[in-house]
């Protein structure tokens, strides 16, 4: 579904990604871990098309298409979704109006007619219940005055509504208390299926107790330095990142 080959990117002339290689197939759950500043969020930004990043080398193929040639909106329309680490508050735009606009823009792209109001509301209700999102928040302005947990839950609700092929969750667990974390994780787990893939970016192993990954990748200094299964996450939790950093530096000096 997603193939990243030797991806290099920089922001303001500073090299952030230094040759990422990654293959994600449908149905898979990939966790990306790593210390602060390793390039985790940059990777998600580059994939989603944030404009201040410049790709200097490499390619990304998503469902047979060159992802890097597409505008952010076309990436979303092709089935890529990024759950933001810091969801934006937009006063005056109602949550529902926003979702309806998004959904219909995606449908138009695929030559489908816009959803009837009735169908849209039915879908909304179904997904809201599925991911346990507070119905009162749906008519409010987008994320305005939402608590940190409510914002993250809204990201998962949007994910449920837009039904992407590949969802990237950028530190969705950061700042969540354990109850909110459980609800967010339960929502994600309900959305897992054989056709959908996930890339979960996290600093902590805690999230991976609730969302069990098929693969764990460790990002350090703009590269994936280690790949393993969920046991790798446990090892990192126990030993921290320092031993990995040392390993990398030893390799470099050899």
């Amino acid at each position: 579904m997603l193939t990243i080959k030797n991806l290099h990117a920089e922001v303001d002339g500073k090299k952030i990604l230094k040759g990422i290689n990654l293959e994600i197939r449908k149905g898979e759950m990939h966790a990306i871990m790593g210390p602060n500043g390793s390039g985790k969020s940059s990777l998600s930004s580059v994939l989603a098309g944030r404009e201040n990043y410049t790709v200097t080398e490499g390619e990304v193929i998503f469902e047979g298409k060159n992802l890097l040639d597409l505008s952010p909106e076309d990436r979303a329309r092709e089935g890529l979704f990024l759950a933001f680490q810091y969801p934006v508050e937009i006063p005056g735009v109602s949550n529902l109006h926003f979702l309806k606009t998004a959904l219909n823009e995606i449908r138009t792209y695929h030559n489908l007619p816009p959803l009837e109001s009735k169908e849209f509301l039915k879908l909304t209700k179904e997904k809201q219940q599925l991911v346990d999102f507070n119905a009162n928040l749906m008519n409010r302005s987008l994320n305005e005055g939402f608590s940190g947990g409510e914002k993250k839950r809204n990201e998962v609700f949007q994910l449920a509504m837009l039904d992407p092929k590949l969802a990237i969750l950028d530190e969705t667990d950061s700042g969540l208390d354990i109850d909110a974390l459980r609800i967010v994780a339960a929502g994600v787990n309900k959305l897992r299926n054989a056709d959908k893939a996930f890339m979960v970016i996290t600093h902590y192993q805690r999230l991976l107790e609730y969302i069990v990954p098929d693969f764990v990748h460790v990002l350090y200094n703009g590269q994936i330095v280690k790949t393993g299964t969920k046991e790798l996450a446990l090892e990192l939790e126990e030993k921290g990142y320092d031993w990995l950093k040392e390993e990398v530096h030893q390799k470099e000096s050899v």
Binding site: R50, F98, L162
Partner: peptide, 17 residues
């Protein structure tokens, strides 16, 4: 960027804002 990342085109996103 937030709106565009949800599939809303630049024009529609600006008019929404």
């Amino acid at each position: 960027f937030y709106l565009r990342s949800r599939g809303i085109g630049e024009e529609a996103a600006k008019s929404l804002l």
